[in-house]
Nucleic acid binder design. Structure first.
Lengths: 337, 337
DNA sequence: TGTTAGCACTCTGGCGTTAAGAGTGCTAAA
DNA sequence: TTTAGCACTCTTAACGCCAGAGTGCTAACA
């Protein structure tokens, strides 16, 4: 049914459509070297490919464009392999240079590289620190009745927050708070810092209750901040330049990126291509390539590109694979944090 | 030349055009209660207003639309005054609620309020801490060879940075660094922390040079971070929904907001309306309303709205004025930080 | 049986024409 | 100075027409 020639023709159509963006007709394909049959033969094959759902016709007298099933088959089986040149690797490596090679920083740099090189939007998902534990809570006086709360997690994430209190704290109060935090929160998982725990903490401060309650509330809010999933987009404006993507839908997507990309929390295979009309990823005419980044057997984040369905998969997928590979190598060198 | 009736007609045209976005003709104006002359008379006046540069005609048989001079006159003299209702004030007040009423947080909240209520983009400019001094530099160990640097300025700004060193520091080294920073950087202005100073600092570490150099470099980078002007946009996507604004120009503007808004560093009067074709603000068909926020006689930041030229100035300007006023009141209550 | 040439058919997109509608400027009268 | 009337201009939508691109089908061919 799907003999080799038909696959070759499908590949040629997808290639051509990715390049030009206009529906491709039988004649254009027949001119491609390597395909040595007449346009009529190709028309027959195209009709069959359309019947099988791999192609569609915008209107009767137009050429064909791939359906997402067509893209899927192309990506899975037909795509030409495109090994990266040394220069390309060099360019990608340069992007990964960071003086603090934490997984988060590397993934975000890689994302920026992808946005720039592909002229698409890119996604950097850092692993949520919600399952890590609190390493340190500090309070630092920084002005009249102003204090900075600082929280550091075992995954190396840091957040700070300014608190303004009603009164200045005495050194004794500060010491008490520092010790109290160390004793009660060090090693506690971010996720378990619920309202209840906080109330218990507040209740147990005894004589210090009035003065320290706002600080403890602040600590709780810091922990909340760690609970949100951490998705960064880059190169949003690249997609605005594309006329084939609906700007209203795009604006909505940007606004609700966390919900729109929540499927990333589920498990997906190491590298996955999602199409806008297919699964959870809802954006017309668009597709997303995502790659999971692992550290040992744990997920350290994810990295990907969002663009029009007619994406240059053959070029972009190796980019993502290479970046993923490099990041994995760089962070696996690290000791456990 | 510009008698009262002509001004009334101009105001009516601007009002109408702001509402509808379509060129307004003489007949529409003649129907407005309060204008009791015929369409023919209005046509004569419109011709004169056009000659004076306040109106223009997209084409011969269309109505008139205001030029930016027309808008300018409208904003300065003609606009109906629109006192805020108590409910509106309440809504705005709610947005200003923040548990840490620093100027920065207030301005950013106000900006978000404006974006939401006006369906435009909004600008929050925090006063750059580049002229403030360093209050505190801390280093906190946070894992194997990992250290968090923390810098706090006299303006209450905080930045942190993770450093990875080649070796773990001993307690002695940590203490030395903490003291060294306190002695040499406390009270030093952000702006004066140049390459030279850093090299001097490095040179004077003596035996600790090798181990501490990366940390000092990190401190320098933190200070650099404070030097950038701090402009936040909100509600960008609101402008994408507007068809009368060029998306390509908009994308470019978002990408280069710092350069595009550098005129905000210059002095401008308390509340200023800028038009896209007029002064420094270059965005076709757009305008910007900016209000300076003061603390005493110093500038504490700025707040504003960016939208299409046909902005509902009569409603938005009171919003901005009220927010500015409230923020000024809230931060002037503060002691000097 | 698979491939190809030929041909009639369909649909789009550009172009010119037409007609309706909106709004104007001008003129002459009030 | 204001107004009514009117001819004029310009846009917009609708319509028909035509060229071009691409197809599907048929019949011949290897």
């Amino acid at each position: 049914m799907l003999d080799e020639r038909k696959l070759k023709i499908l590949a040629a159509i997808v290639d051509e459509y990715i390049m030009t963006g206009i529906p491709v007709g039988s004649k254009a394909i027949s001119n491609i070297p390597g395909i040595n049959v007449s346009a009529a033969t190709i028309r027959n094959d195209m009709a069959m490919l359309e019947q099988l759902g791999y192609l569609e016709q915008p209107h009767t007298s137009a050429g064909r464009i791939p359906t997402f099933e067509g893209y899927r088959l192309y990506v899975d089986k037909l795509m030409p392999s495109y090994p990266l040149s040394e220069e390309e690797k060099k360019v990608l490596d340069d992007f990964l240079e960071t003086d603090v090679p934490t997984a988060d920083a590397l993934i975000q740099n890689a994302s920026k590289a992808l946005a720039e090189l592909t002229h698409c939007a890119s996604v950097a998902k850092n692993v949520s620190p919600q399952f890590s534990v609190i390493t340190k809570v500090e309070v630092i006086p920084t002005g009249k009745r102003m204090y900075v709360l600082l929280m550091i997690t075992s995954s190396g994430n840091i957040k700070n927050k300014v608190c303004r209190l009603e009164f200045d704290l005495t050194n004794e109060q500060l010491d008490f708070f520092a010790n109290y935090m160390a004793e009660n929160l060090q090693g506690v998982s971010i996720d378990s810092l619920s309202e209840d725990t906080v109330e218990k903490l507040v209740a147990a401060t005894g004589a210090y209750m009035v003065t320290l309650t706002p600080l403890i509330k602040g600590v709780c809010e810091l922990a909340e901040g760690f609970r949100d999933s951490d998705i960064h987009l880059s190169g949003e404006k690249n997609l605005l330049a594309r006329p084939d993507i609906d700007h209203a839908q795009l604006a909505h997507f940007f606004e609700h990126k966390n919900e729109a990309l929540k499927m990333l929390d589920g498990s997906f295979s190491d590298l996955q291509v999602m199409f806008g009309e297919d699964g959870d990823f809802v954006m017309k005419n668009s597709s997303m390539i995502m790659s999971k980044i692992k550290k040992g057997d744990k997920t350290a984040g994810a990295l990907g590109v969002i663009g029009p369905m007619r994406l240059d998969y053959a070029k972009i997928i190796p980019y993502i694979e290479y970046l993923t590979e490099r990041i994995t190598a760089l962070i696996s060198e690290d000791d456990e944090i």
